[in-house]
Structure formats: C-alpha cells, structure tokens
Simulated assay, not measured.
Amino acid sequence: MQIDLSGKTALITGASAGIGLAIARGLAQAGASVTLCARDAQRLAAAVAALQAEGLQAQGVVADLATATGCQALVAAVPGVDILINNLGIYGTQDFFALTDEDWENFFQTNVMSGLRLSRHYAQGMKAHGWGRIQFISSESAINIPADMVHYGVSKSALQGLSRGLAKVLAGTGVTVNTILPGPTRTEGVQAFFANLAQEQGISVPEMEVRFFRENRPSSLIGRFATPEEVAHLCVYVASPQASATTGAALRVEGGIVESII
C-alpha cells in the first residue's frame, strides 16, 4: 500500500514534539502540506525547521488552543484544511481529592474543548468539499482510567463520545472522524516524567520503566513504550483515502494493554 496525500493540507495541534511532531512528519512524508500548531514559539520554530530541512512542506502557527481566543487565532491564520489532527493534550498524576474545579476545567478546556472548537469549524469546510479526515488523539486511559489520573482519563473518555457523535453528524459526507488510542509512548514529556519518578524513588530510569509496566500496565503485550512513529503510522493511514470506510471508530495502538477483543 502506498499512501499519497499530495495536494492535501493537514493541521496538527500540539505538534512541536512527541506524537504530534511524528504525525506531522508522517503526513508530510506522504505528500501533505502540514501546519503545526503549538504555544511555545521557540520549540515550534525548531520543529518546523527540522521538517523543512528534510524537504517537507511545513509551516507553524503559534496559538494557545486551551482558550477560545487561541482557537480563533488559529482559524484566522488557517481557514481550511483537509486533515485535522486534534493531538493537543496535557496529563499528570494527582490525588483525586486534591483536584480542584480549576484543575478539572483546565483539563477539559485543553483536552476536549480545543478539539471541539477546531472540529466545529474545519468540519464545515470538509463537508462542503466532500472529503476530510478528523482525528482525536485519545489514550488507552480513556478505557482504563488510572486511579491517579482520573481527571485525565475522564477528559480522554469525553473524546470518544465527541468523535463518535461527530462521525454521525458527518455521515455520508465523505468526512471521517475517528479517535486514536495510544498507550504509553516514549515522548520527550514522558521521558522527563519518568526521569523525575526514578529520581524520587532512587532507582534508574530503565528500572522505573520496568516497574511501571509490571505494576501499572501488566496487561501490556509488548511490555515496552511505543515510539511516537509507531503511533503516527496508524494516524497517517487513517488520514488516507484508503481509510474511507473507517469512521466513528476508536482505534487502538496501545500495545495490547486493553483487555478486550473489540
């Protein structure tokens, strides 16, 4: 199978590093012209420069998509796209009883409302053109909600409902909507997170990772972190013309952690 996205435009949020940058690179390598969005101007410029140095079509837009104003700024800069990857998300462990209303609101605005606002806008143009791809990058935590990250898991579960509902709204239009469920992935943020945990517990990072899978993700069938590129491979396929019959789905790339055959 050869995926050709020549002539297509794609927007990837939270794209200055990690899974977002890997998806942007994969889409661009397939021929798409990609726009990366992030709120850190310096990191975003470095990511765009890296893609351009590889001969890929890429540009960047700086915006804080956790706010309505930031989403409006992005839409003004990029009025329409063929492919929308709602990758922006935050995470972190916290005791459930210590979570404030402000904590919940921050996670909901960042993880859910950013994608909702952008999808509401860009889906209309896709519908008018009779073709489009919308993806929400969720998590296996949407199904296996961690006790120490209830707020994160709930926000990702919300994406499942949003994606399925929007797929129904766009039924028969040529626009597909899906969620992608990565598992533990070796991004820069996760590496820093585990380095801190290892230091707190007085063990090495490799030991911390082994302990994590043994104690927190024992059902993992691969027993390791996925790479951002492994997640991106699925996203590129789902964004392709070949995936035209895949919509309203929750597609897992989580190493077999979820104990379900469907």
Results as ranks from 00 to 15, higher is better:
Ala142Arg: 10
Arg211Lys: 05
Gln135His: 08
Arg224Gln: 15
Gln201Ile: 00
Leu221Phe: 06
Val236Arg: 08
Thr173His: 05
Leu197Glu: 12
Ala171Gln: 10
Val231Asp: 04
Gln135Met: 14
Ser219Gly: 02
Ile137Lys: 08
Thr179Val: 13
Ser240Lys: 10
Thr173Val: 09
Lys168Tyr: 04
Tyr152Arg: 14
Leu181Tyr: 05
Val205Glu: 05
Pro241Met: 09
Phe194Met: 13
Leu234Tyr: 03
Ala232Met: 12
Phe193Tyr: 10
Val177Gln: 04
Glu230Lys: 03
Val150Asp: 13
Pro241Phe: 11
Leu166Ser: 01
Pro241Asp: 15
Pro241Val: 11
Glu200Ser: 07
Gly172Phe: 15
Pro218Ile: 08
Thr179Pro: 07
Phe212Val: 00
Leu159Glu: 01
Asn178Arg: 04
Lys168Cys: 00
Phe225Val: 00
Ser219Met: 09
Ala171Ser: 06
Thr176Gly: 04
Ala226His: 01
Pro184Tyr: 11
Glu188Ala: 15
Ser240Ala: 11
Arg211Gln: 15
Glu207Asp: 14
Arg214Asp: 08
Phe225Asp: 01
Val190Cys: 00
Ile137Ser: 12
Glu207Ser: 08
Arg214Asn: 13
Phe212Met: 14
Arg224Pro: 05
Arg133Asp: 04
Ile203His: 07
Gly174Val: 14
Val169Asp: 15
Ile143Asp: 08
Phe194Pro: 08
His233Asn: 09
Ser155His: 08
Gly172Ala: 06
Ala167Glu: 02
Val154Arg: 06
Leu162Pro: 12
Glu200Ala: 15
Cys235Met: 12
Ala198Arg: 00
Ser163Met: 12
Cys235Ile: 13
Thr227Gly: 03
Cys235Thr: 13
Leu170Arg: 09
His151Val: 14
